[in-house]
């Protein structure tokens, strides 16, 4: 019984049930399948993180964002005063996280690729693109770069899903995806 010592001093010699052996084999093979599926997806799947990351100071990242806004601003988001920028397709686009906003609003073209740079100027934040439900962790001092390809047109929201203080639930942002003209 499990609350008493085993019969043999050397429990390693106790008998094993055949059903147990079969289950162990099945579970082990299943582990291998899951392992190779991840690797397989890196070559075949379209959703993989590049893990391209740079160390960057908040000031330097902020300067890059400002430069992009300077060059490509096309308007403002409603009456929020937040700039809307429309950089060319296949270019680098930047979004910063800070207490408590995602900045600026990006306007992207459907079906084109963009190198999206994400970093925080202060605390950690959670980039959560809705309704796609793509979620990335954003750190201060780390610039994460990934290539995205919006495949659907429409208005997408960015929510913050890493707790970042009392304004956490007000921290939102936007990505607009437009059909190419």
């Amino acid at each position: 019984m499990a609350i008493f010592p085993p019969k043999a001093r050397v429990w390693w010699n106790e008998p094993v049930q055949k059903t147990e052996l079969i289950w162990i084999a099945v579970a082990f093979v299943w582990g291998l399948v899951m392992f190779f599926t991840m690797i397989f997806w890196h070559s075949v799947g379209e959703q993989n993180l590049s893990n391209e990351t740079y160390k960057i100071s908040p000031e330097a990242f902020s300067a890059k964002v400002d430069a992009m806004i300077e060059q490509y601003q096309v308007g403002e988001e409603g009456d929020t005063g937040i700039p809307v920028v429309r950089p060319p397709a296949d270019s680098d686009v930047y979004m910063l996280a800070r207490l408590w906003e995602w900045y600026p609003v990006l306007e992207l073209e459907k079906g084109r690729k963009y190198r999206l740079h994400l970093a925080s100027l202060d605390w950690q934040h959670g980039f959560s693109l809705q309704p796609e439900n793509i979620n990335l962790q954003v750190h201060p001092n780390y610039e994460m770069v990934l290539t995205v390809e919006p495949t659907t047109a429409g208005v997408f929201s960015v929510v913050c899903n890493e707790f970042c203080g009392i304004g956490h639930h007000q921290m939102v942002g936007r990505i607009r995806v437009v059909e190419n003209q």
Binding site: T80, I82, S128, V159, F163, H168, H169, V172
Partner: peptide
């Protein structure tokens, strides 16, 4: 799976700058 964030006080985003 429908996108609701964890540790979040208001998923209606009533006080946020943009509506979601």
């Amino acid at each position: 799976t429908l996108g609701v964030p964890r540790r979040h006080w208001d998923i209606t985003f009533a006080d946020a700058a943009m509506s979601i």
